[in-house]
Design a protein around this nucleic acid. Structure first.
Lengths: 193, 193
DNA sequence: ATAACTCGTTCACTTAAGTTAAGAAATGAG
DNA sequence: CTCATTTCTTAACTTAAGTGAACGAGTTAT
């Protein structure tokens, strides 16, 4: 199971056996059942998550409605805002599927950054990369219509459309479930003609 | 001038005189005239930017139309996507006002990370913080209407509405300039009643 | 087996954004 | 200062998303 992780890391830096053992000994792998809530609005937490297998989502509840804003699947991770700024969380995190996670916390990170400065380098590179990718994502969202965003998603993360309920996808696309239904019907209609 | 920078950095780590001198000696401060283009679509570049004073923006040209997707003002920085993934840029960067910038490049960064590991720590913390903030921003964008987004901007970055042309603000809000005009008129109408 | 719920779709209607065009106001160049 | 250009606003019309309601299919609980 940790091989998934080491394969991923090896794209960025090479690890010694010592370093690998150090990671394994941390005992940070968790298996979580579909539907489990990892974090609730208003809670404080110190946990960061990295998905090895499965899918988790972040969502808000606004006027009684769930608004899903992000999905994290294989080899994607998040450190919730509430961990960074030590304030109550503004959103929920829960498992879309049965999921295998790495769960981290800042103290643990600090320790391993101390022991292996290479880890901190890795984390810097990863988060800078993620930041740039995230910005492009946001740019695409801003510069396109809901229909274009849906077609774009179909290209870039076709798996999501299969593994995630429509109404969660809708808010992820910034629209209502009814609009997503209609938009899909519209696209289907076009492709027939 | 560098005091602006050192004040900012001191919120995160304390620097020795040695470290400060090392930064100053890099000669990375640049003064740029309003309207200057720093990066064009299709170009490759190694430059990262950090704004000490003034304002820069990123924009795309899609179907002949400028789409502004981000503004960076005092104490904000960006490393363009093209620097991270060594590919031609998808967007332009230019100065909205006369601007004082710090211009960096990866080699320089690597050198100073070597000399002062503290810098790499600082950069990791900053980019993780930025990533979380950026995510919240995106979440707010997705979960609100253009009108709400405008009102939100009015709260959070009122300066932008003053210092930036309307049509650039419009695409930043994900709408057309005409829609922004209308939306503003609508809000003004409401507040009168 | 049935009732209660959730989920996706459809419909009619409302509201707001996109589009096209025109003109006023502000800015910049010669 | 004047002309040209850019920027902002307004208006009429089109298109698509929001809203509220209803329905059937699938799921869960009793």
């Amino acid at each position: 199971m940790q091989n998934l992780l080491f394969d991923f890391i090896s794209k960025y830096v090479s690890l010694t056996e010592d370093e690998k053992n150090s990671i394994t000994s941390l005992d940070i792998f968790r298996t979580i059942k579909k539907g489990t809530t990892l974090l609730k609005e208003g809670q404080k937490s110190n946990e960061g998550y990295f998905v090895l297998k499965g899918c988790i989502r972040t969502y808000y509840i606004i006027d009684g409605e769930e608004k899903t804003t992000a999905f994290y699947t294989e080899m994607e991770g998040l450190t919730p805002h509430c961990v960074i700024n030590k304030a109550p969380s503004g959103y929920y995190i829960s498992c879309v599927e049965d999921t295998i996670l790495i769960v981290t916390n800042p103290d643990m990170e600090a320790d391993s950054f101390n022991k292996f400065p290479k880890f901190e380098s890795l984390c810097r590179v990863l988060s800078e990369e993620l930041l740039a990718k995230q910005q492009i994502n946001f740019d695409e969202f801003k510069t396109s219509s809901p229909e274009q965003r849906y077609l774009n998603l179909l290209q870039k993360r076709p798996d999501l459309i299969q593994r995630v309920p429509q109404h969660q996808l809708a808010s992820y696309l910034g629209i209502k479930p009814q609009s997503l239904s209609r938009l899909r019907a519209r696209i289907h209609e076009k492709s027939k003609r």
